[in-house]
């Protein structure tokens, strides 16, 4: 079953509170919602809150893994998504033509992903009923999970998946964050 609108609002507020209230600097939070089909439990997009990266230093250019062609592709997709949301008659939003950062793209792509129980970092956390904490570019790059490797390419240094009621909460950061019992609680 899909999350009702009311639940979606509550979920959004809780994800936002989790990130904004944390001592660590998280870039995004995603709730992967569990559902059941003939093959078993599947984790799919529930909701997400994107905070973005800390602004470090004035005028410092953000390192990006994207080429000019990749940027064009991202902007094109964003323009199409924007028309889908606001209606094709709406004027094009100027913000859509701003560079789409690597972490923004990673977050957007996440909306299309799902995990069967036991697969990927969210699937592992659910299957083992235990948090998965991957910190450091090397650990992300050598992960069995494609999503973790992709995250590293897009500049993430930490991805955490914590099992919770009806799903898994995932947090990602461009900073190196070591395990915190504070957050778990």
């Amino acid at each position: 079953p899909s999350v009702s609108l009311l639940n979606q609002e509550t979920l959004q507020q809780r994800l936002q509170a989790l990130i904004e209230g944390a001592r660590e600097s998280w870039t995004y939070a995603i709730f992967w919602q569990s559902s059941y089909d003939y093959s078993g439990t599947v984790l799919g997009w529930g909701d997400g809150y994107y905070k973005g990266e800390e602004d470090k230093g004035k005028g410092k250019l953000k390192a990006s893994a994207s080429t000019a062609a990749e940027q064009e592709h991202r902007k094109k997709v964003l323009r199409e998504l924007n028309s889908l949301i606001s209606g094709s008659a709406a004027p094009t939003d100027d913000a859509v033509d701003e560079e789409v950062t690597d972490t923004e793209w990673f977050f957007l792509v996440s909306m299309t992903q799902s995990f069967v129980n036991g697969s990927g970092l969210p699937g592992q956390a659910l299957y083992n009923s235990s948090p998965v904490w991957v910190a450091g570019p090397d650990r992300l790059a050598s992960s069995m999970c494609e999503r973790a490797r992709q995250g590293q390419v897009f500049g993430l240094q930490t991805i955490v998946c914590i099992p919770s009621a009806n799903g898994v909460v995932e947090l990602g950061s461009t900073e190196l964050i070591t395990q915190s019992s504070d957050l778990m609680n």
Binding site: S2, V3, L5, Q8, Q12, Q33, W45, G46, D47, G48, Y50, G52, V77, L78, E80, L81, N82, L84, I85, D93, D94, A95, V96, E98, E104, F107, L108, M111, T112
Partner: peptide, 26 residues
């Protein structure tokens, strides 16, 4: 672009709105 289910559509709308705010305030 494949059709976007409701939960994703709501998240997407929110993401685009917040992005607009970030770009405007930059």
């Amino acid at each position: 672009i494949p059709s976007v289910p409701q939960a994703r559509k709501a998240s997407l709308a929110r993401f685009l709105e917040k992005r607009k705010e970030r770009v405007m305030s930059a």
